[in-house]
Each structure stands twice: as structure tokens, then as C-alpha cells.
């Protein structure tokens, strides 16, 4: 059994009277792709937000490699090795492709303001290393970010490439755990399959991945395990096929009568 990298322990988060995430517990194992599945409003993105520090859980705890990270801010959680992408793209549109990835490295680089003012050798060395590493990361998406594109504004990329760039920016933080919020949303089937393959490649490179996805092809094709949620509660967990056929999951999507008809 591989080691647990992230542990969510009875996390709860309410907005007013609505329990968006209710007493949720699960583990993520090192080197796996774990998918979160569930109808809209079932608490998947809220789960992401409490893991990455955008929200603090009302109760419960989150452990990254055994240490509690609940209540830390997003910057601190980034420093612990968790990076994420967003459901609605959040790129730095007016910055170049390369700069987007370089910003992803911000917390990993050290040059202070005086180093930067006087371009000290230390700063220049770090800058050259950062640019090299950024180009390496962009090269993980073969053919998608040729050198000619590196200086273009992120806003000029096609939609699918913007999604890829967001993943690249998250990778620039050298995370151990990568959270992808609907990585193939809005893509055509061919693009989805390509991104799915790229996600599996990332796992093979040693990243652990937690993703939210609606595309069943991608979930079935990429995930090692799946957790299904509804109304903020975990309703099923296990291998992709088992979860997809779980009566509780079918009911969550189709309603009771739909579930009866399906069985």
C-alpha cells in the first residue's frame, strides 16, 4: 500500500444554512489519480477550496503528509506542495505564456527586491534557471507551446491551450499533489483524450492528482479511484466502474425513478 499524501478528516463547510461539504473524509495515496464525481452543487469545488486554503473548514482537519494545513492561506498551502487549476480559467491574460509559468514559480524563487534592483549574479542565475525550468514544463505538452508562442499573451491562446497553460502554471510550483478542477471542460472529444493522456503522463512522472471531472470517458480512462459526492456527502468510493454502477450514484444523477428505470 502506498503512503497517504493527503488526508481529509470529517471536513465540514457551511454557507449560511447550506452544508456545502458535510463531514467529508477521504485519503489520497501517493502517485494515484483520484477523481471527484457528482452532480452540480454536490460540493466538489468547495472541497478543492478548503484543501487549497481559499476557505477554512468550519470543522474537521486536513493533513498534508501528516501535518495539518487547515486554516493556512493559499500561499502557505502552495508552499507545502499543493497546486491547483480553476474551473473557470484564471490565467494572467495580459502576461505572456512564459510569464504565466514563471509566476507559478514565485514561491519557489528567492531573489529579494534589492537583488532584483541591481540584478545581482544570484538573481540572474535564478532567473536563467527559472526560465529554463519554465520551458521544460511547457515542453511537457508536446507541440502545444512551441518557442514562438512563449512570448504571446496568454489571452491569445486557444481555449484548450489556455487550460493546458493553467496546468503548466500549477506544475511550476513543483507540487507533490496537483488539483485539477474540470481539466477537460469545454473541450472536444479529441482534445479531451489528449489532455487525459497528458494527465496520466503526469502521474507517471510522479505527481499525485486529485481531479474534478464530469466527462465519464476521462474519469473511466484516467482515474485509479473515484469518489462520488452528493449534497456535500461522500456517497461512494472505489474503482471507477464500481462507483459508476453504484445504485446511490445512479440515483444522485437520475433520481429514484430514473435509477429504477436504469436497473
Amino acid at each position: 500500500m502506498p503512503d497517504v499524501i493527503l488526508e481529509v478528516r470529517s471536513a465540514t463547510k457551511s454557507f449560511g444554512g447550506l452544508k456545502a461539504v458535510n463531514n467529508l473524509s477521504f485519503d489520497i495515496y501517493e502517485g494515484e489519480i483520484l477523481s471527484l464525481l457528482g452532480p452540480n452543487g454536490s460540493g466538489k469545488t468547495t472541497t478543492f477550496n478548503i484543501i487549497t486554503g481559499l476557505y477554512e473548514p468550519d470543522s474537521g482537519d486536513i493533513l498534508m503528509q501528516g501535518e495539518s494545513i487547515a486554516g493556512l492561506d493559499p500561499g502557505q498551502i502552495y508552499a507545502r506542495g499543493i497546486s491547483r487549476t480553476f474551473q473557470m480559467l484564471r490565467l494572467f491574460s495580459n502576461m505572456s505564456v512564459l510569464e504565466n509559468v514563471l509566476v507559478g514559480m514565485h514561491g519557489r524563487t528567492k531573489a529579494n527586491v534589492l537583488d532584483c534592483m541591481f540584478r545581482t549574479p544570484k538573481m540572474r542565475r535564478e532567473e536563467v534557471q527559472s526560465v529554463e525550468r519554465a520551458r521544460e514544463i511547457l515542453a511537457m505538452f508536446p507541440g502545444r507551446f512551441p518557442l514562438a508562442r512563449h512570448m504571446q499573451p496568454a489571452a491569445s491562446l486557444s481555449y484548450a491551450n489556455r487550460r493546458r497553460l493553467e496546468i503548466a502554471r500549477a506544475l511550476a510550483g513543483e507540487p507533490k499533489l496537483l488539483l485539477l478542477d474540470e481539466p477537460v471542460a469545454g473541450m472536444n472529444p479529441a482534445e479531451s483524450l489528449e489532455v487525459m493522456q497528458q494527465i496520466k503522463d503526469l502521474r507517471d512522472r510522479g505527481y499525485t492528482i486529485l481531479m474534478i471531472e464530469h466527462d465519464m470517458k476521462v474519469i473511466m480512462g484516467a482515474s485509479d479511484r473515484v469518489i462520488a459526492m452528493d449534497h456535500g456527502v461522500k456517497i461512494a468510493e472505489g474503482a471507477p466502474l464500481d462507483v459508476a454502477n453504484d445504485p446511490a450514484v445512479v440515483e444522485a444523477y437520475l433520481g429514484r425513478r430514473g435509477a429504477d428505470a436504469a436497473s
Binding site: 487549497t52 500561499g75 491547483r84 490565467l91 502576461m95 514563471l102 509566476v103 514565485h106 532584483c116 535564478e126
Partner: peptide, 22 residues
């Protein structure tokens, strides 16, 4: 430099910048 890029990132999207360690 990294600091200038951090400023630009904040201008473009503060949440994403914060999640990038700025």
C-alpha cells in the same frame, strides 16, 4: 524580475496569484 511579475499577476488575478505563492 519575479517581483515585477508578481505585481502583474496581482493586477490580472489576485486569487490565482495567491495560489501561485505570491
Amino acid at each position: 524580475s519575479r517581483i515585477g511579475r508578481a505585481w502583474n499577476a496581482l493586477r490580472e488575478d489576485e486569487i490565482a496569484a495567491h495560489h501561485s505563492g505570491v
